[in-house]
Computed example of a mutant assay.
Amino acid sequence: MSSDRFTVGPSGRALLADLGVNLPDVLRRAALPTMVYASETVELTTAQYYAFWRALDDEAADPLLPIRIGEAMRAEVFDPPMFSAFCSPTLRVAAARLRTYKKLIGPLRLVLDSRGGAMTIEMHWPDADQAPGALMLMELIFWVALARMATRDDVRPVRFAAPVDPTVEQAAAYRRYLGTPLEHSAVPAVTFSGADAERPFLTANDRMWEYFEPGLRRRLDEFETEPSTAELVRQALLRLLPAGASTIEAAARELAVSGRTLQRRLQSEETNFQAVLRHTREALAHHYLSTSRMSTGEISYLLGYADTNSFYRAFQSWTGRTPDQIRAGASAI
């Protein structure tokens, strides 16, 4: 998995339902396919994740959306990495666990600072100037909501800061919810006293942590094994070709880089976009011809060709044979 792609689980559907927000409407606003969040898990890029949150903020039309989310949070809507935090013995341990595993479910890097006994959680976003304000505030509020749910106490941070400029009404609402003022800061951060960081979680569950931890470790190992640029392009083309997109510009947009950068990375791997495109099409063509009953015209369409003749000519140049010959050979086996 690329460091710019991460898995989002189905828990968000339940949270949106609790908020009274219509998921299909949010997806339309974000220009995301309706299949997003329709299955157990889905992969999103950072740009898609940000687009989703901007659309959610617009659709909810609530200047206090992050507070509403904090109030609606329930343990049963957490993904495994989040639930591992809920099972922790203290907030300090929860933060350490999520510092390790948060990257599996979102484009966010956590930095912990425990100098002086207090605990500060800083949040570093990729393309931070593009990160929606509601998303940054929600991620900060998550820690307050987690501490309150897990301890069953009115835990109040000693500092809560984000790069946002709230209205007077919003600032007052945040102060009521948090018990501390919302400060302006270039880096989003929330600080808890040492006592609150060590306050025992009533939800602590070592057995559940032992159950989740091996799976999370395996997922993290897979995440940190970076695929080659050529493999990332191939994966992008698998998504793009059925929609008729087969240009380097389309692949670059999918991977959130410029076309020039993408070509340069491919060249460093001693290949180029056209070579990856050809190999991807050839592999898909063989797969469709040998495992499906789709017509040659249908296969041509799925491979992003404008017409069947173009596919025929390309296939013969790759293999020296026609698609019909390959299909006949597969049928004879």
Rank of each mutant, 00 (worst) to 15 (best):
P132M: 02
E40G: 07
E282P: 12
K103Y: 04
G215Q: 13
L64I: 05
R219Q: 10
G320I: 15
A85K: 04
G215C: 11
V8A: 13
A230W: 06
D153P: 13
A72L: 05
A332W: 07
P10Q: 03
S3Q: 08
A236G: 15
D79Y: 00
A30V: 08
G70V: 10
I141H: 09
T180C: 04
D324P: 11
E226D: 07
A60M: 01
L266Q: 13
T34F: 04
H184K: 12
R68K: 14
P66Y: 05
F78N: 04
Q325D: 09
R281V: 14
V155M: 05
P181A: 02
T308F: 03
F192N: 00
P126D: 01
S292Y: 03
A256F: 04
A38N: 15
S185E: 02
E231Y: 11
G179K: 01
R29N: 07
T319I: 13
M73G: 13
T46A: 13
L146R: 11
C87A: 12
L15E: 02
M123W: 11
I121S: 02
P132Y: 01
R68D: 01
A256N: 11
A328E: 06
R176D: 12
A245D: 06
R253D: 04
P81M: 02
E222F: 10
P132V: 07
P81C: 02
M136P: 15
G194E: 00
G70N: 08
A173Q: 11
R281S: 14
I333P: 14
L98N: 12
Y305E: 08
N22Y: 12
L232M: 05
L289Y: 10
R207Y: 06
I326C: 05
L140Q: 08
N309G: 11
G194L: 08
E76P: 14
S295L: 07
H287N: 09
S331E: 02
E249S: 11
T34L: 08
L289W: 10
V36D: 00
T319M: 06
S290A: 01
A285G: 14
L27E: 00
S295I: 07
F78S: 09
Q235D: 04
D127Y: 05
T7Y: 01
R265W: 10
S11Y: 03
G116W: 01
Y312F: 06
H286Q: 08
A131G: 08
M294I: 04
T41G: 02
E282M: 08
G179W: 00
A51R: 06
Y174E: 03
R293K: 13
T308I: 06
A328P: 05
